[in-house]
Design a protein around this nucleic acid. Structure first.
Lengths: 209, 209
DNA sequence: GAAAAACTAAACCATGCGGTTCAGTTTTTA
DNA sequence: TAAAAACTGAACCGCATGGTTTAGTTTTTC
């Protein structure tokens, strides 16, 4: 019979294959342009199997997005001895690597375009992506302030501004497919953002330049 | 007969109606989900007329985007006597009003999602939108530097960072439909960005705080 | 006022879509 | 090893799509 709907934890290998294929197809084609036939074909699975695991295209899409969101990584700095410049530079590096990855860019494109049609997905994406990142970076900045490495600012505000200075024109051009990520340019963006942060909020123990 | 293809300048009223309707439908539904039938219906026009003016869905979409791009507005400050704080605040206000307008948000969503499929449109959007804005703001910043209101920075870099600090978390949440633009929050974002800019790059004649 | 151009409504076409069904085969399980 | 569950491939459904055509009506143009 069909309809496995295996009791919660079970999840077959086919199911994962369908999710993998669906992720590839949705991120590549966009939600509306993606077809269930192409998902099945890409998964090397019959369409009946796809519908055995997922009730509808919407639900499959939601499952794909939620699975990605659950994999959100942590920025937590292992090394708490870093000074402000080193800490911010490291955060910047990690964030830029993440933001500029082809998969994250594709995810951003499709979630943004479907956000009004699927508000719960937009919320889930925000919470596990930008929202979580902001909170983590704010925590690190708060620690830097506590250690006297940065002047007293609202850490969440500083986090917003720092991330904003990373996600600039260069990010937009990459998002639009107008340029390929290039290491040296990325480093410049990071260094510039760190310098401005330190000029604005640095202390004697974390001088700019 | 059909196929007006009126010689360049002519452009009938029906053509404008089709473009208006197409803009509404594309920005509202996204490219793939929008149908030519709904465009015709919304324009109060027969489908044959739509195809008399535009060869295909792609071309109609392109015409819509290009028309919007051509309407890009200028940020040029009329008043050259403003100090750095006032000038940056005014720029911020205008930029935020533009970025957070429902139409600009919808445009951003659809262009971003179609950027890989329609690279020329992505380029046109960038050039007339973010690219033009960056150039204009950089010119104003250059003027402020010349007048000794700001320290010597690369004006384009400062422009990127300033815009980045405006397009933060708040913009993302609005883009995703998670919040409605609220005046006081917007003002806070602008004031915070201006303050950080002045702390980092202000001079004696443009003190922060 | 008449020819030319723009437009209309509706039927039409082929295609592809999301989703279902079915008869039969493979895999899992105990 | 046999029953139960998962899976296959292909046919199928109804419908909407992008795009065309036709036959006739309105508007523009000079």
């Amino acid at each position: 019979m069909l309809t496995p709907r295996t009791g919660g934890t079970r999840r077959s290998a086919k199911r994962e294959a369908v999710l993998d294929a669906a992720q590839a197809v949705f991120l590549e084609m966009g939600y509306a342009a993606a077809s269930m036939d192409s998902v099945a074909a890409r998964a090397g699975v019959s369409k009946a199997t796809v519908y055995a695991h997922f009730d509808s295209k919407d639900q499959l899409f939601a499952a794909v997005i939620r699975r990605r969101c659950d994999k959100s990584e942590a920025f937590v700095l292992a090394d708490r001895t870093l000074d402000a410049r080193a800490a911010l530079t490291l955060i910047g590096r990690r964030l830029m690597d993440l933001l500029l990855s082809p998969e994250a860019l594709a995810m951003y494109r499709v979630v943004v375009s479907e956000s009004l049609r699927q508000p719960e997905l937009a919320q889930a994406f925000y919470d596990s992506g930008p929202g979580a990142g902001k909170a983590q970076i704010a925590a690190i900045i708060a620690e830097l302030i506590r250690r006297g490495e940065l002047a007293a600012v609202d850490p969440r505000r500083a986090s917003d501004q720092f991330v904003g200075m990373l996600r600039t024109d260069y990010f937009m051009r990459t998002l639009l497919g107008l340029t390929q990520p290039e290491g040296s340019r990325v480093d410049d963006v990071i260094d510039d953002a760190v310098e401005t942060m330190l000029r604005a909020w640095g202390t004697a123990s974390s001088p700019p330049r």
